[in-house]
């Protein structure tokens, strides 16, 4: 199924969780926060939250800021 990650389309397996997506993208050790369809997914829920068709995912990391 198709989702969008940080604005880019991505084809994934239908059973993927947030945790699985982070692993697939190589982010499992990255210090990131995740939102699905503009709702924050708490870290403790990564393993349970299943992604759905046409979900939009934001994966954010700390950056310099004022």
């Amino acid at each position: 199924m198709q989702i969008k990650v940080n604005g880019r389309p991505l084809e994934i397996a239908a059973t993927l969780t947030v945790e699985g997506l982070l692993e697939q993208l190589g982010y499992q050790d990255h210090f990131v926060a995740v939102a699905v369809n503009e709702t924050c997914i708490p870290r403790r829920s990564y393993g349970e939250h299943r992604l759905g068709e046409r979900d939009t995912i934001e994966i954010l990391a700390p950056m310099a800021g004022g």
Binding site: Y27, H30, A64
Partner: peptide
Amino acid sequence: ITVSLRRESAQENRDHRFWEYL
């Protein structure tokens, strides 16, 4: 100190030392 959040990208070779320094 203030920090922002920006999209993570595997393509960009981002300097992850930033967060370690903070």
